[in-house]
Design a protein around this nucleic acid. Sequence first.
DNA 1: TTTAATTAGATGTACGTACATATATTTGCA
DNA 2: TGCAAATATATGTACGTACATCTAATTAAA
Lengths: 151, 151
Amino acid sequence: MKLEDVLKTNKFNDEIHKATLNILYTSYWMRDNVSSTMKEIGITSEQFNILRILKGKHPEAMCVKDIASRMIEKSSNVPRILDRLVAKELVMRTTSKEDKRETIISLTDTGIQTLQRANDALAAINKQTIGINNEEAAVLNQLLEKLRKTD
Amino acid sequence: MKLEDVLKTNKFNDEIHKATLNILYTSYWMRDNVSSTMKEIGITSEQFNILRILKGKHPEAMCVKDIASRMIEKSSNVPRILDRLVAKELVMRTTSKEDKRETIISLTDTGIQTLQRANDALAAINKQTIGINNEEAAVLNQLLEKLRKTD
DNA sequence: TTTAATTAGATGTACGTACATATATTTGCA
DNA sequence: TGCAAATATATGTACGTACATCTAATTAAA
Protein backbone atom coordinates (compact mmCIF):
# COMPACT_ATOMS: atom_id res chain seq x y z
CA MET A 1 0.00 0.00 0.00
CA LYS A 2 1.25 3.46 -0.78
CA LEU A 3 1.94 5.74 2.17
CA GLU A 4 -0.69 8.15 0.83
CA ASP A 5 -3.32 5.44 1.27
CA VAL A 6 -2.00 4.31 4.65
CA LEU A 7 -2.17 7.84 6.10
CA LYS A 8 -5.07 9.05 3.91
CA THR A 9 -3.20 12.18 2.91
CA ASN A 10 -0.74 13.40 0.34
CA LYS A 11 0.25 16.55 2.15
CA PHE A 12 3.95 15.79 2.37
CA ASN A 13 6.31 18.78 2.35
CA ASP A 14 8.88 16.90 0.25
CA GLU A 15 10.41 13.45 -0.23
CA ILE A 16 12.43 13.81 3.00
CA HIS A 17 9.31 14.47 5.04
CA LYS A 18 7.60 11.55 3.34
CA ALA A 19 10.62 9.32 4.02
CA THR A 20 10.50 10.03 7.76
CA LEU A 21 6.83 9.00 7.89
CA ASN A 22 7.54 6.03 5.62
CA ILE A 23 10.25 4.74 7.97
CA LEU A 24 8.00 5.16 11.02
CA TYR A 25 5.18 3.33 9.26
CA THR A 26 7.36 0.53 7.84
CA SER A 27 8.80 -0.03 11.30
CA TYR A 28 5.28 -0.27 12.73
CA TRP A 29 4.26 -2.65 9.92
CA MET A 30 7.25 -4.93 10.52
CA ARG A 31 6.80 -4.97 14.30
CA ASP A 32 3.17 -5.85 13.73
CA ASN A 33 4.16 -8.78 11.49
CA VAL A 34 6.73 -9.98 14.00
CA SER A 35 4.32 -9.62 16.92
CA SER A 36 1.63 -11.70 15.21
CA THR A 37 4.20 -14.39 14.48
CA MET A 38 5.58 -14.39 18.02
CA LYS A 39 2.09 -14.54 19.49
CA GLU A 40 1.75 -18.11 18.19
CA ILE A 41 5.00 -18.91 20.03
CA GLY A 42 3.72 -17.27 23.21
CA ILE A 43 6.18 -14.38 23.47
CA THR A 44 6.23 -10.69 22.54
CA SER A 45 8.58 -9.25 19.94
CA GLU A 46 10.62 -7.57 22.70
CA GLN A 47 10.97 -10.83 24.58
CA PHE A 48 12.05 -12.43 21.30
CA ASN A 49 14.66 -9.72 20.84
CA ILE A 50 16.19 -10.50 24.24
CA LEU A 51 16.24 -14.25 23.55
CA ARG A 52 18.02 -13.49 20.27
CA ILE A 53 20.60 -11.34 22.06
CA LEU A 54 21.25 -14.07 24.64
CA LYS A 55 21.68 -16.61 21.85
CA GLY A 56 24.47 -14.48 20.39
CA LYS A 57 26.68 -15.26 23.42
CA HIS A 58 25.29 -18.67 24.35
CA PRO A 59 26.42 -20.83 26.13
CA GLU A 60 27.99 -17.83 27.86
CA ALA A 61 25.59 -15.95 30.11
CA MET A 62 25.11 -12.17 29.95
CA CYS A 63 24.51 -9.48 32.54
CA VAL A 64 21.54 -7.12 32.26
CA LYS A 65 23.63 -4.15 31.19
CA ASP A 66 25.17 -6.06 28.26
CA ILE A 67 21.74 -7.15 27.09
CA ALA A 68 20.50 -3.57 27.35
CA SER A 69 23.40 -2.23 25.27
CA ARG A 70 22.37 -4.52 22.37
CA MET A 71 18.67 -3.61 22.37
CA ILE A 72 17.22 -1.76 19.37
CA GLU A 73 15.17 0.47 21.66
CA LYS A 74 17.89 1.83 23.89
CA SER A 75 15.58 2.85 26.71
CA SER A 76 13.97 -0.57 27.04
CA ASN A 77 13.44 -1.57 30.63
CA VAL A 78 15.29 -4.88 30.47
CA PRO A 79 14.74 -6.06 34.09
CA ARG A 80 10.99 -5.94 33.57
CA ILE A 81 11.07 -7.88 30.29
CA LEU A 82 13.31 -10.43 32.01
CA ASP A 83 10.68 -10.84 34.75
CA ARG A 84 8.35 -12.26 32.11
CA LEU A 85 10.97 -14.46 30.49
CA VAL A 86 11.85 -15.88 33.91
CA ALA A 87 8.14 -16.48 34.62
CA LYS A 88 7.92 -18.41 31.34
CA GLU A 89 11.10 -20.31 32.31
CA LEU A 90 12.84 -19.28 29.09
CA VAL A 91 15.78 -17.71 30.95
CA MET A 92 17.42 -18.10 34.37
CA ARG A 93 18.40 -15.23 36.62
CA THR A 94 21.24 -15.51 39.14
CA THR A 95 23.51 -13.09 40.95
CA SER A 96 27.13 -12.86 39.87
CA LYS A 97 29.63 -14.28 42.35
CA GLU A 98 32.39 -11.85 41.28
CA ASP A 99 30.22 -8.73 41.42
CA LYS A 100 27.10 -9.09 43.50
CA ARG A 101 25.54 -6.03 41.83
CA GLU A 102 25.31 -7.91 38.55
CA THR A 103 22.40 -10.13 37.59
CA ILE A 104 23.45 -12.91 35.26
CA ILE A 105 20.97 -14.17 32.69
CA SER A 106 21.23 -17.45 30.81
CA LEU A 107 18.96 -19.26 28.36
CA THR A 108 17.22 -22.41 29.57
CA ASP A 109 16.81 -25.41 27.27
CA THR A 110 13.19 -24.41 26.78
CA GLY A 111 14.41 -20.92 25.94
CA ILE A 112 16.72 -22.24 23.24
CA GLN A 113 13.98 -24.40 21.76
CA THR A 114 11.49 -21.55 21.84
CA LEU A 115 13.98 -19.25 20.13
CA GLN A 116 14.58 -21.84 17.42
CA ARG A 117 10.86 -22.07 16.72
CA ALA A 118 10.59 -18.26 16.78
CA ASN A 119 13.46 -17.86 14.31
CA ASP A 120 11.94 -20.40 11.93
CA ALA A 121 8.52 -18.77 12.11
CA LEU A 122 10.06 -15.35 11.51
CA ALA A 123 12.08 -16.51 8.50
CA ALA A 124 8.89 -17.95 7.00
CA ILE A 125 6.84 -14.79 7.53
CA ASN A 126 9.65 -12.55 6.26
CA LYS A 127 9.91 -14.60 3.11
CA GLN A 128 6.20 -14.01 2.49
CA THR A 129 5.95 -10.35 3.45
CA ILE A 130 9.27 -8.67 2.56
CA GLY A 131 9.38 -7.63 -1.08
CA ILE A 132 12.98 -6.54 -1.65
CA ASN A 133 16.05 -8.54 -2.61
CA ASN A 134 19.50 -8.50 -1.06
CA GLU A 135 20.87 -5.83 -3.42
CA GLU A 136 17.96 -3.49 -2.73
CA ALA A 137 18.37 -4.14 0.99
CA ALA A 138 22.03 -3.11 0.73
CA VAL A 139 21.02 0.22 -0.84
CA LEU A 140 18.44 0.68 1.90
CA ASN A 141 21.09 0.04 4.56
CA GLN A 142 23.41 2.64 3.06
CA LEU A 143 20.66 5.25 2.86
CA LEU A 144 19.46 4.63 6.42
CA GLU A 145 22.95 5.00 7.85
CA LYS A 146 23.49 8.15 5.83
CA LEU A 147 20.14 9.47 7.08
CA ARG A 148 21.19 9.15 10.76
CA LYS A 149 23.72 11.97 10.42
CA THR A 150 24.04 12.80 14.13
CA ASP A 151 23.88 9.23 15.43
CA MET B 1 26.79 5.27 13.73
CA LYS B 2 26.87 1.97 11.92
CA LEU B 3 24.23 -0.57 12.90
CA GLU B 4 27.01 -2.95 13.94
CA ASP B 5 28.09 -0.45 16.59
CA VAL B 6 24.55 0.39 17.66
CA LEU B 7 23.67 -3.26 18.31
CA LYS B 8 27.21 -4.38 19.19
CA THR B 9 27.06 -7.30 16.77
CA ASN B 10 27.67 -8.10 13.15
CA LYS B 11 25.81 -11.37 13.11
CA PHE B 12 23.37 -10.44 10.37
CA ASN B 13 22.13 -13.28 8.17
CA ASP B 14 22.16 -11.08 5.07
CA GLU B 15 21.44 -7.52 3.93
CA ILE B 16 17.69 -8.11 4.19
CA HIS B 17 17.95 -9.15 7.83
CA LYS B 18 20.18 -6.16 8.48
CA ALA B 19 17.71 -3.86 6.72
CA THR B 20 14.84 -4.95 8.96
CA LEU B 21 16.89 -4.14 12.07
CA ASN B 22 18.12 -0.93 10.46
CA ILE B 23 14.56 0.26 9.83
CA LEU B 24 13.50 -0.59 13.39
CA TYR B 25 16.49 1.26 14.78
CA THR B 26 16.17 4.30 12.49
CA SER B 27 12.52 4.56 13.46
CA TYR B 28 13.50 4.49 17.14
CA TRP B 29 16.22 7.08 16.52
CA MET B 30 13.81 9.44 14.73
CA ARG B 31 11.08 9.05 17.34
CA ASP B 32 13.67 9.81 19.99
CA ASN B 33 14.70 13.00 18.18
CA VAL B 34 11.09 14.08 17.74
CA SER B 35 10.24 13.29 21.37
CA SER B 36 13.12 15.40 22.71
CA THR B 37 12.02 18.27 20.50
CA MET B 38 8.37 17.99 21.52
CA LYS B 39 9.30 17.81 25.20
CA GLU B 40 10.34 21.47 25.04
CA ILE B 41 6.88 22.25 23.64
CA GLY B 42 5.20 20.21 26.39
CA ILE B 43 3.66 17.45 24.28
CA THR B 44 4.57 13.87 23.29
CA SER B 45 5.29 12.82 19.72
CA GLU B 46 1.96 10.96 19.57
CA GLN B 47 0.08 14.04 20.75
CA PHE B 48 1.97 16.03 18.09
CA ASN B 49 0.91 13.51 15.47
CA ILE B 50 -2.76 14.02 16.35
CA LEU B 51 -2.44 17.82 16.28
CA ARG B 52 -0.87 17.50 12.83
CA ILE B 53 -3.73 15.30 11.62
CA LEU B 54 -6.32 17.77 12.91
CA LYS B 55 -4.47 20.62 11.16
CA GLY B 56 -4.90 18.79 7.85
CA LYS B 57 -8.67 19.37 7.97
CA HIS B 58 -8.76 22.59 9.98
CA PRO B 59 -10.97 24.62 10.36
CA GLU B 60 -13.16 21.54 9.84
CA ALA B 61 -13.41 19.30 12.91
CA MET B 62 -12.80 15.54 12.82
CA CYS B 63 -14.33 12.56 14.56
CA VAL B 64 -12.20 10.11 16.53
CA LYS B 65 -12.46 7.37 13.90
CA ASP B 66 -11.16 9.65 11.13
CA ILE B 67 -8.22 10.69 13.27
CA ALA B 68 -7.48 7.03 14.06
CA SER B 69 -7.50 6.06 10.37
CA ARG B 70 -4.70 8.57 9.70
CA MET B 71 -2.42 7.49 12.55
CA ILE B 72 0.93 5.89 11.73
CA GLU B 73 0.46 3.34 14.50
CA LYS B 74 -2.88 1.89 13.53
CA SER B 75 -3.69 0.49 16.96
CA SER B 76 -3.16 3.76 18.79
CA ASN B 77 -5.75 4.36 21.45
CA VAL B 78 -6.91 7.74 20.21
CA PRO B 79 -9.52 8.51 22.92
CA ARG B 80 -6.82 8.26 25.60
CA ILE B 81 -4.38 10.53 23.78
CA LEU B 82 -7.23 12.99 23.27
CA ASP B 83 -7.87 12.99 27.04
CA ARG B 84 -4.42 14.55 27.48
CA LEU B 85 -4.83 17.05 24.63
CA VAL B 86 -8.16 18.15 26.13
CA ALA B 87 -6.53 18.50 29.57
CA LYS B 88 -3.87 20.75 27.98
CA GLU B 89 -6.66 22.69 26.21
CA LEU B 90 -5.08 22.09 22.79
CA VAL B 91 -8.25 20.47 21.41
CA MET B 92 -11.99 20.60 22.16
CA ARG B 93 -14.25 17.56 22.44
CA THR B 94 -17.98 17.72 21.68
CA THR B 95 -20.64 15.24 20.71
CA SER B 96 -21.94 15.30 17.14
CA LYS B 97 -25.52 16.57 16.78
CA GLU B 98 -26.19 14.40 13.71
CA ASP B 99 -24.82 11.17 15.19
CA LYS B 100 -24.61 11.17 18.95
CA ARG B 101 -22.19 8.23 18.91
CA GLU B 102 -19.54 10.41 17.33
CA THR B 103 -17.14 12.58 19.29
CA ILE B 104 -16.04 15.65 17.37
CA ILE B 105 -12.57 17.03 17.94
CA SER B 106 -11.40 20.50 16.97
CA LEU B 107 -8.19 22.44 17.48
CA THR B 108 -8.25 25.36 19.90
CA ASP B 109 -6.34 28.57 19.16
CA THR B 110 -3.72 27.43 21.65
CA GLY B 111 -3.59 24.12 19.83
CA ILE B 112 -2.90 25.82 16.51
CA GLN B 113 -0.19 27.98 18.04
CA THR B 114 1.39 25.01 19.78
CA LEU B 115 1.38 23.03 16.55
CA GLN B 116 3.04 25.91 14.73
CA ARG B 117 5.83 26.02 17.30
CA ALA B 118 6.14 22.23 17.16
CA ASN B 119 6.41 22.23 13.37
CA ASP B 120 9.08 24.93 13.42
CA ALA B 121 11.09 23.10 16.08
CA LEU B 122 10.82 19.84 14.16
CA ALA B 123 11.93 21.43 10.88
CA ALA B 124 14.97 22.83 12.67
CA ILE B 125 15.95 19.54 14.30
CA ASN B 126 15.39 17.58 11.08
CA LYS B 127 17.64 19.97 9.21
CA GLN B 128 20.40 19.26 11.72
CA THR B 129 19.96 15.51 12.11
CA ILE B 130 18.76 14.10 8.78
CA GLY B 131 21.64 13.45 6.42
CA ILE B 132 19.99 12.60 3.10
CA ASN B 133 18.81 14.87 0.29
CA ASN B 134 15.50 14.84 -1.54
CA GLU B 135 16.70 12.50 -4.31
CA GLU B 136 18.01 9.96 -1.82
CA ALA B 137 14.76 10.23 0.13
CA ALA B 138 12.82 9.44 -3.05
CA VAL B 139 14.87 6.24 -3.53
CA LEU B 140 14.25 5.37 0.12
CA ASN B 141 10.51 5.85 -0.34
CA GLN B 142 10.43 3.54 -3.36
CA LEU B 143 12.39 0.83 -1.56
CA LEU B 144 10.24 1.01 1.58
CA GLU B 145 7.03 0.69 -0.39
CA LYS B 146 8.47 -2.23 -2.35
CA LEU B 147 9.55 -3.83 0.93
CA ARG B 148 5.99 -3.84 2.30
CA LYS B 149 4.87 -6.46 -0.19
CA THR B 150 1.76 -7.66 1.65
CA ASP B 151 0.63 -4.26 2.92
C1' DT C 1 -42.31 -1.27 14.33
C1' DT C 2 -39.68 -3.93 17.10
C1' DT C 3 -35.53 -6.07 17.54
C1' DA C 4 -30.91 -7.77 16.00
C1' DA C 5 -26.70 -6.31 14.11
C1' DT C 6 -23.50 -2.79 13.47
C1' DT C 7 -20.91 1.25 14.59
C1' DA C 8 -18.48 4.86 17.57
C1' DG C 9 -16.26 5.55 21.36
C1' DA C 10 -14.81 4.63 26.16
C1' DT C 11 -12.60 1.70 29.44
C1' DG C 12 -9.87 -2.25 31.59
C1' DT C 13 -5.58 -5.05 31.50
C1' DA C 14 -1.05 -6.71 30.10
C1' DC C 15 3.00 -5.21 28.17
C1' DG C 16 6.52 -1.88 26.90
C1' DT C 17 9.02 2.83 26.89
C1' DA C 18 10.88 7.05 29.08
C1' DC C 19 12.56 8.80 32.92
C1' DA C 20 13.26 9.57 37.92
C1' DT C 21 14.58 7.62 42.08
C1' DA C 22 16.02 3.93 45.37
C1' DT C 23 19.12 0.15 46.99
C1' DA C 24 23.08 -2.60 47.15
C1' DT C 25 27.69 -3.16 45.95
C1' DT C 26 32.09 -1.86 44.35
C1' DT C 27 35.71 1.43 43.32
C1' DG C 28 38.70 5.17 44.04
C1' DC C 29 40.74 8.52 46.69
C1' DA C 30 41.93 11.34 50.88
C1' DT D 1 41.22 2.35 56.36
C1' DG D 2 37.06 4.98 55.75
C1' DC D 3 33.99 7.30 53.01
C1' DA D 4 32.33 9.60 48.73
C1' DA D 5 31.44 8.58 44.03
C1' DA D 6 30.29 5.49 40.64
C1' DT D 7 27.99 1.37 38.99
C1' DA D 8 24.32 -2.39 38.39
C1' DT D 9 19.91 -3.29 38.90
C1' DA D 10 15.24 -2.71 40.60
C1' DT D 11 11.13 -0.08 41.11
C1' DG D 12 7.57 3.73 40.67
C1' DT D 13 4.87 6.72 37.51
C1' DA D 14 3.15 8.75 33.24
C1' DC D 15 2.31 7.67 28.68
C1' DG D 16 1.40 4.69 24.77
C1' DT D 17 0.14 0.15 22.25
C1' DA D 18 -2.49 -4.19 21.64
C1' DC D 19 -6.48 -6.19 22.42
C1' DA D 20 -10.85 -7.42 24.78
C1' DT D 21 -15.09 -5.84 26.49
C1' DC D 22 -18.75 -2.47 27.52
C1' DT D 23 -22.26 1.15 26.52
C1' DA D 24 -24.90 4.09 23.74
C1' DA D 25 -26.67 5.17 19.39
C1' DT D 26 -27.82 4.08 14.75
C1' DT D 27 -29.02 1.04 10.96
C1' DA D 28 -31.07 -2.84 8.88
C1' DA D 29 -34.02 -6.57 8.61
C1' DA D 30 -37.89 -9.51 10.01
